[in-house]
Design a protein around this nucleic acid. Structure first.
Lengths: 140, 140
DNA sequence: ACGATGATTATTGATATCAATATATCTCGG
DNA sequence: CCGAGATATATTGATATCAATAATCATCGT
């Protein structure tokens, strides 16, 4: 018997990344008319939910490496959807904000997100979406 | 009330990608002594489990875009861990095989994978790993 | 005030990922 | 056999992701 047949069926990293790729494509496709992808939508939705994030706080909330966030904000800043402003008290920190244009784009994107969200929940019909979210929170 | 607070707590794409990033880092760290990352381990384990994959078959099994696999095999070929050979009957298909060096590296990596796998299962202790895998299969 | 240590963000170099497109090859009707 | 459409893989250009490192700035002890 082949020792490696098992791995494809039990490896948590493989299952997670495969699912993340597929679901990410669902959201990306739904969001395409708004001109952003699912990662950019998540980032901007965080900014809309709570102002005054530092880079590190936001990176932690997204489960991202600090340097990955540093790269991810660049395309959004180039399009003037978000801005980074220097902290007043501590000159090292950078605070992120949505611009008015970013907020408008996000509002246009929200119904598209909801469509994708519905489709993803349908895939989880027989698997208790809340239990799955809870498990994913434990992993992330 | 802010319409966007909800999104961070219910978005399936965000939960999945956050978990996938974190878990991926666990496996990457464990596999580092072998010189491969979790995606490369998955790819090579598939080749060890069953020979004679075409590119498209393997891409489907990994839930990857065909063009992503095309890019992913390059670093492994450069290191002579896998080879691509032209199909005999159909000149379009390329078949992938582990080289002996690839097989040796994979055998060295397997106990490292098992360590990471144990750590990931521990995170899922209270969440029935088999149920989670089943849900992830439904998503991917 | 100085210097060491720590904290925050950015940069670099590598791989990963996709959509769109290109290229090569096959198949099948005529 | 030829050409049209289909299929398999590769390339391109953009963003995503990390580890390692660099660059700034803060803090604290002396």
């Amino acid at each position: 018997m082949n020792e490696y047949r098992e791995i494809g069926s039990v490896c948590i990293a493989l299952h997670l990344r495969r699912a993340a790729r597929h679901v990410g494509r669902i959201y990306d496709e739904a969001l395409r008319p708004a001109g952003i992808n699912n990662g950019q939508f998540s980032l901007m939705a965080m900014l809309a939910a709570k102002d005054d994030w530092t880079m590190q706080e936001l990176a932690d909330s997204l489960g991202l490496d600090q340097s990955s966030l540093s790269a991810a904000v660049k395309p959004l800043m180039r399009r003037d959807l978000i801005v980074q402003e220097a902290g007043t008290d501590d000159a090292r920190v950078r605070r992120l904000r949505l611009t008015p244009a970013g907020r408008r784009l996000l509002d246009r994107a929200r119904p598209l997100w909801r469509t994708a969200q519905r489709r993803a929940e349908e895939l989880l019909e027989d698997h208790q979406p809340d239990a799955v979210r809870s498990a994913l929170r434990a992993l992330g």
